[in-house]
Amino acid sequence: MRIIKKIIGFITFTLASLFIGILMLTRIPWPTELRDIYETNTIQETGAPNIVSAIYLGYRAYDTLGETIVLFIAAMGTLYLLRHAQKSLFIATDSTKETLTYKTRRTSIIKVIVSKLGPAIIIFGMYIMAFGYRSPGGGFQGGSVLASGIVILSFVFIENKSKYMAITQMLKKIEVMVFILLLVSFFLACLQALFF
């Protein structure tokens, strides 16, 4: 029975991926119409030289709102899950408890390297953010670099659980502020559209 199921699985997988392959490998000349429209109109309409940013934050800002809300909900959901994971740590049975402690075999290599490298990464991220308006992709990747710098630093500087919990509390507050900022900017944009 299991073998039959496996065979069916492989056949369906192969067929489905074949179809996806047809779709991916069909070569049709890429359309240029929209590119030309943006190329001629972006500067007059938005004033931004970076077309990607103009689309991302101007023409299709509504998509970006949706995307930010996805990010926001994912952050909220993940934090909620992690908080509840902390609770279930205490319920865990005795046999499993010992493996769950935060004692780790951590050498000082990470600490030394990260504490030197982390600030450099953060500065680099800020640089990319600041010059995002004239680099491909906008300030987006700057944000990613900055965030990865912060994550690396947090590996070193969060040693025990109490600190971790304190940080979750702080994150909760940041979460609120960011969402409010987002909506305020959205409302301002709406108002601007309404009255000006």
Binding site: Y38, I51, V52, Y56
Partner: peptide
């Protein structure tokens, strides 16, 4: 320039 739409 390249097509900006896919990038956005």
């Amino acid at each position: 320039v390249v097509d900006p739409i896919p990038q956005a």
